[in-house]
Amino acid sequence: MLAALVSGASLVLDPRFEAGAYWSRVMEWSPTWLNTVPAMLGALAAQPAPHEATLARLRFARSASAPLPVSTSETFTAHTGVAVLNTYGMTEAAGQITADPLDSSARRAGSVGLPVGVGLTVIGPDRRPVPPGSQGEVVLRGWQVTGRYLELTGHGAEASRPARDAHGWLPTGDLGFRDEDGYVYLVGRADDVINRGGEKLHPQEVENVLLGHPAVSSAAVVAAPHERLGQVPVAFVVLRAHRTASGVVEELDRLCAQRLPRHKRPAAVTVTSELPTGPTGKVLRRAVRADVMALASDAALGGSR
């Protein structure tokens, strides 16, 4: 909305997303770019491909609001012919933080692009910047980055607290790294890290492998308690329409064994009919984790693999 206001463009708002009617609406309004979320891209990739005339003015589909798996982006583009521009943002930075270059040849698979008018660095546990390629927490600063958080006390009174550290940096809680050219790659949230017997892993990396299977439409990996290791990763997947669970779990086990080191492989993979999601279709991993904790006494989660 802000981009449309600043550029003097027109904006088409749908009351709700309907995959079956989406391309007919694109044909009707003839936009130059689409604002989407990964769940929308996955749903559209399962629909009949749009006609060439529908895409006459379309330059790209922008993805935001949730991590975009490389497999989802590649499948959507191969199916529709529409390139995907990946972005990263948060409310505290007035929405936009990074974006892929408009030049598709300059985009890098798995990256959320380059910072857009905001200061961004990656810091280690000592709160100092880490070198390119090293993982740490993403922090931000700039005129558009909020300085304080407004909170309600237990009595309903308003209070506020600083959002930035002493050097003006806002911690995002997102973990990632930058390459030698400054492209940003996100690996997950700090509070989602799973510690399996001292070896740490990020659920997003495992989810991306699971989503690479053609039968999987969505996935969530969370920590389950383990008597000896402390925590182990467990996975929940939703299958695409007309796919059955028969044989899929075994195939996913083999896929993880091929692409992940042993400590990152899920201790259990469960097929479920749905996963809890937010308004944008983003899987609410916290809700999945709460369900797992409620089932912590299940013997199936007690063994190691």
Rank of each mutant, 00 (worst) to 15 (best):
L211C: 14
E205M: 08
G247R: 01
Q204F: 10
V249L: 05
D253P: 05
V248D: 12
V222S: 13
R228E: 12
V248A: 10
P225D: 03
V209Y: 00
L255Y: 01
E205N: 10
G212P: 05
A215E: 14
V234R: 01
Q204H: 11
G247T: 12
F236T: 02
E205R: 04
S246Y: 03
A220K: 02
V221Q: 01
V238C: 11
L252H: 02
R254P: 08
V216K: 07
Q231T: 07
G212K: 00
S246D: 15
E207I: 11
E205T: 14
L252Y: 04
E227Q: 14
E227L: 14
S218T: 06
V206S: 08
H226E: 12
A219S: 11
E251W: 04
E207W: 04
E207N: 13
V248W: 04
V216L: 10
L252T: 05
V222W: 06
V237W: 04
V206K: 00
S246Q: 09
L210W: 00
L210G: 07
R254A: 15
G230A: 09
L229F: 11
A223N: 02
L210E: 00
V221N: 04
P233V: 02
E227G: 09
V238D: 05
P214R: 06
Q231N: 09
A241Y: 09
G247H: 07
V232G: 03
S246G: 06
A235M: 02
V221D: 04
V232I: 15
L255I: 01
A245Q: 14
Q231H: 12
L211R: 07
V249H: 03
P233N: 08
E207G: 11
L211D: 04
H213S: 09
V206C: 09
V206L: 05
A223L: 05
V232F: 06
R240N: 14
A215K: 02
E250A: 14
A224E: 05
S218R: 01
F236V: 00
A215Y: 05
V222T: 13
E205K: 03
P225H: 03
H213G: 10
E251D: 15
E205S: 13
V238R: 06
S218F: 00
H213K: 03
V248N: 08
P214D: 13
A224D: 04
H213R: 04
A220T: 04
V248R: 01
E227C: 07
A219L: 02
V238N: 07
S218K: 00
V221E: 02
A235E: 02
E250T: 07
A241C: 12
V222F: 10
H226P: 13
E251I: 05
V206D: 06
V248G: 10
N208M: 09
V221K: 01
F236D: 03
Q231P: 07
V206G: 10
R254E: 15
Q231I: 05
V234F: 00
